[in-house]
């Protein structure tokens, strides 16, 4: 095993180009577990801790460019307003110690369906900035990023540099089911974002399919129902039957398995419950802000 310690992003890309089998390690919260338990013996470890750019974020007009290694603790602390869904998701990650080390780049690189950030990124809308020494930068839409169980759209010579997440234009929520009240891997998770600017709702589901997925049919149904019912304008309470049907469609969009963490049946059920609740919470919040702004006007 060799330990590569690039001091800059350019050096990191060069190292990855030279050693495409090199395993990037940043927070180490996935890679080191695999090494400690002899599940993995990479030929090269590519340490990204000294690449300072990866720990920075910029808040732009429409989106946040979030460095791949920005720890979850920082997202919770500094980006709650801009990225509320991701901040909530960050808060559910493992433990304080892990949140101090792990970042979104690791979740994306591992591409486990159980990664906590994925549903929030899917719901918010995001692009993954990846780069190689040979071909430069490309932006991969989050919807195209996950390609299979623990597989993603990265080429062997590419590294994840940042993720561009759309700034919240409305309320966002995130829920995750685990069988413990802290420090738990998701049995399943659900992210939901209201986008009043475009009058759309986006979702993200974790641990309930081979990859993180959006509940597209459910989104289409809800977008249509909200539009037809004039909900965005009126801000009225969402009809229970609409919420229920949305929840059912979210559950139906899952393709879960039975495993030691939970049954497929439970995962489908829980996704439905979380979909209904997060829709209620976000919509109530949307109504609240509308009322408040009307009151102010």
């Amino acid at each position: 095993m060799d330990f590569l310690r690039p001091a800059s992003w350019e050096e990191a890309l060069a190292a990855k180009a030279e050693h495409p089998t090199a395993v990037p390690i940043a927070g180490g919260t996935d890679v080191m577990v695999e090494i400690n338990f002899d599940h993995r013996r990479p030929e090269y470890l590519l340490d990204l801790n000294r690449v300072g750019d990866l720990y920075e974020w910029e808040v732009g007009e429409d989106s946040v460019r979030l460095g791949a290694s920005v720890p979850y603790a920082k997202i919770m602390e500094h980006l709650r307003a801009e990225l509320p869904g991701l901040a909530l998701a960050s808060h559910t990650v493992a433990s304080p110690q892990i949140r101090n080390r792990g970042g979104v780049g690791g979740n994306l690189g591992t591409a486990s369906p159980a990664g906590d950030a994925h549903p929030a990124l899917l719901a918010a809308g995001a692009e993954v900035e990846v780069q190689s020494a040979a071909r430069g930068t490309r932006l991969v839409p989050i919807d195209d990023f996950y390609t299979g169980v623990k597989r993603n759209a990265l080429q062997p010579d590419e590294l994840i540099r940042a993720v561009h997440v759309r700034k919240a234009d409305g309320p966002q929520q995130y829920s995750k089911v685990g069988t413990r009240n802290a420090m738990v891997i998701a049995v399943c998770a659900f992210g939901l974002a209201l986008h009043p600017d475009t009058r759309t709702v986006r979702t993200g589901i974790g641990s309930a399919a081979p990859t993180p997925v959006r509940a597209a049919t459910a989104e289409d149904f809800l977008n249509a129902a909200l539009e037809e019912g004039g909900f965005w304008d009126s801000g009225k309470v969402i009809t229970p039957s609409v919420a229920r049907q949305f929840a059912d469609l979210c559950a139906a969009s899952c393709n879960p398995i039975d495993d030691v963490r939970g049954t497929a049946g439970y995962r489908r059920h829980a996704v439905g419950v979380m979909a209904r609740r997060t829709l209620t919470w976000t919509w109530e919040s949307y109504r609240g802000t509308r009322t408040a702004s009307e009151g102010a006007a």
Binding site: I25, G28, T29, V31, M32, L45, N49, Q97, N100
Partner: peptide, 15 residues
Amino acid sequence: GVPVCSCLVAAGQVE
């Protein structure tokens, strides 16, 4: 200064 699990920090990362 930041609390971390030292089992998940690769030795080379603390240089």
